[in-house]
Design a protein around this nucleic acid. Structure first.
Length: 274
DNA sequence: CAATCGTCCTGCGGGC
DNA sequence: TGCCCGCAGGACGATT
């Protein structure tokens, strides 16, 4: 389940491996992942174009071509981008293959098939609602603790689903929301508007810290996530609560609990997190 | 209006 | 032992 650190790792890998390369051919193995335009036009508008620039916004990857178009990729739960140094290789569940001029290739594979790809004119990226409504980048300079306090003010519901709300903050998913709350000692069901300044500061600092750390470890492979070379991330073993139901809390030794919040599994320490 | 629920999909784990 | 049901999850659309 790629979240911000995993998508950022893939973004850096793409910059290293395929940036500046010209697409010789696009092979479509399963056209369901292509949201726009039609498969025929998708191929026509990508072939012979250069992957000019790679960006990340939230969990979206944006590949700007040397035309007026950009390729937008969302991996959702099980999407993978895998680079092969030579043509002809293929993974299970491959949906798309980009073959470059130098005979290297990029596979888009997706076990569960929730991942999406769009090709849109650069000026029309906001026609993807989830991209247009994205909240601030949590690691961005403009995302200050004061801004975080303002955003939390008056919000209803529970803090954990709010952290996962992409229109609230971009890029946080089920794993890092829980980990940040653990480090901050905040119960995932707390009312966001009732967090005191000290708690907000702790959450802000730990959220940014864990995202930076996870990036430095090339992400966590809690599901099928792998990097461009098919390697797993190294941050999994540093996760404190995710998937650790019944194990003891690394901080206080209490038994980690699992509850469901908004239909999503949520792990926390009932003693440390209040 | 805002929060919650069902949906898509497939591998795998729990339970009998 | 082996099979099958149900769970898991990001984001959208429907519902309450």
């Amino acid at each position: 389940m790629p979240e911000l650190p995993e998508v950022e790792t893939i973004k850096k890998d793409l910059e290293e491996k395929v940036k500046g390369k010209r697409v010789k051919r696009v092979k479509i193995k399963n056209e369901k992942c292509i949201k726009a335009p039609s498969p025929v036009e998708f191929v026509k508008r990508i072939e012979n174009k250069i992957f000019r620039e790679i960006q990340r916004r939230g969990k979206f990857l944006i590949v700007k071509l040397d035309s007026l178009d950009a390729l937008i990729i969302h991996l959702k739960l099980t999407g993978q981008l895998i680079y092969f140094p030579k043509e002809g290789e293929e993974l299970n569940y491959t949906r798309l293959i980009f073959i470059f001029d130098d005979h290297t290739q990029l596979n888009f594979a997706d076990l569960r098939g929730f991942g999406n790809i769009w090709l849109l004119p650069e000026g029309r990226l906001s026609t993807i609602p989830a991209l247009a409504d994205l909240g601030p980048e949590p690691l961005g300079d403009e995302f200050t603790v004061e801004k975080f306090k303002k955003l939390l003010k008056g919000r209803k519901g529970k803090i954990k689903p709010l952290l996962m709300d992409q229109s609230f903050i971009a890029g946080i998913g089920n794993v890092y929301s829980q980990e940040a709350l653990f480090l901050a000692g905040i119960h995932p069901e707390r009312n966001p508007s009732k967090l005191v300044d000290e708690e907000i500061e702790k959450l802000y600092n730990n959220l940014r810290k864990i995202l930076r750390e996870a990036i430095s470890y090339r992400g966590s492979s809690v599901d099928t996530y792998v990097d461009l070379e098919g390697r797993k991330g190294n941050y999994e073993q540093h996760l404190n609560v995710y998937g650790r139901k019944g194990q003891s809390c690394p901080r206080c030794g209490a038994i980690i609990r699992r509850i469901t919040i908004s239909g999503r599994g949520t792990y926390f320490c009932p003693r440390c997190q209040r």
